[in-house]
Design a protein around this nucleic acid. Structure first.
Lengths: 206, 206
DNA sequence: ACCTGAACACCGTTCAAGT
DNA sequence: ACCTGAACACCGTTCAAGT
């Protein structure tokens, strides 16, 4: 076939197919992805010269662009914005569990994801956080969101059968499983609020 | 050679070689590991019938057993124990950065790691946390530690060149890089203390 | 620029054969 | 039980050849 007059592929198209493959099978193999697109494996390298790593980074962009706030709303306080930032970030990952290990295994280089870190930093700066506080704040929030995403994508049963059936942990899991409301989601809320008040105190105690 | 009169390998030995290989090269390939041990790849499967996954789980055990507290000390409060638990957990990972993505990509099933979750739950239970609070506490701490481990193992430069050089985030990074004290470590401390007071409030506000 | 097919150096896993 | 070597079905990446 050689070069077609009109391109068979585009980054967009490949990324969508990759996300679809990942959601359906939990894996992302380049040969498999290419087969899905009715194309040779090597064709993918024309659109992602960085190979698999660049493709995964593209996925990060696809996920975060749709889900993270671009800037603070009218008169929105730093706490409210930070809440939206963290929730949006986590939501982006939780919607595609199989993508999470890929994201966490690889350094963030996607511009729009990095831009959202910048935005958060800007908001905190404007709220009176100094350099060091700001950096710690961003780090802490990033840490917590990523960890929470990992947790949300793991089965609850993980800890269930860990010890004696009467142990506090397994009892707690059974007790909590009954009630509605996602365990991971509720824990995320609790942790996020704790971090927000912790950060506020950090700023004010100076 | 067939079966040797005295075994050439042991789980211990394989795990140590695996950790060594991981620390040195950042990767953990079974063929490469076998070559390192002067053994055929398939020999590994006699000691880890679950294959690579079981091997990685064994690594988790190796890391956590040496680093996590087995129980509360004499008259140690829940906050102090929880601090030790979280710090030990994180330290186990941070000492072997290349192992972190492997750990986070895979469900925890190693008994001794699970036991340490049980211990934490027990301590919180004895401190008056009810089932739901306890589960949230463990989840939140777990999330934060894993996220922090991921962060600690990533290069600081990640965010450095993200936006305009004068952006708050890159300024903050430059300002903080100069001073001693590990950024990730300090952020971890801040977040952990925030979570601890958040958890205390959760328990007391009931 | 964009696709192909072949080639390369790897993977993880299984299994019959040997003691 | 424990090691071997061969075999299988995969990987990710590169590259000359074609338009």
């Amino acid at each position: 076939m050689a070069r077609p007059s009109t391109p068979l592929l585009s980054r967009e198209q490949i990324l969508r197919a990759a996300l679809d493959l990942l959601d359906r099978t939990g894996e992302l193999g380049l040969p498999r992805l290419a087969r899905q697109l009715d194309v040779g494996t090597s064709s993918l390298y024309h659109h992602f010269k960085g190979g698999r790593e660049e493709l995964v980074e593209g996925l990060r962009g696809l996920l975060t662009e749709g889900s993270m706030p671009t800037g603070p709303g009218q008169g929105e306080g730093w706490q409210d914005f930070t809440r939206r930032w963290a929730r949006g970030y986590r939501a982006a990952f939780v919607a595609h569990p199989a993508a999470v290990p890929l994201m966490t295994a690889q350094t963030v280089t996607h511009p729009s994801t990095l831009a959202s870190y910048e935005t958060l930093a800007q908001v905190l700066h404007d709220a009176g956080f100094d350099d060091e506080e700001l950096l710690h704040a961003v780090t802490v929030l990033d840490n917590f969101v990523l960890g929470s995403a990992l947790d949300a994508c793991a089965p609850v049963e993980v800890w269930a059968d860990s010890g004696r059936p009467g142990s506090p942990l397994s009892r707690a899991i059974r007790a909590t499983k009954a009630q509605p409301g996602d365990r991971s989601e509720r824990a995320f809320h609790l942790g996020l609020e704790s971090l927000l008040t912790g950060l506020e105190r950090l700023r004010d105690d100076r």
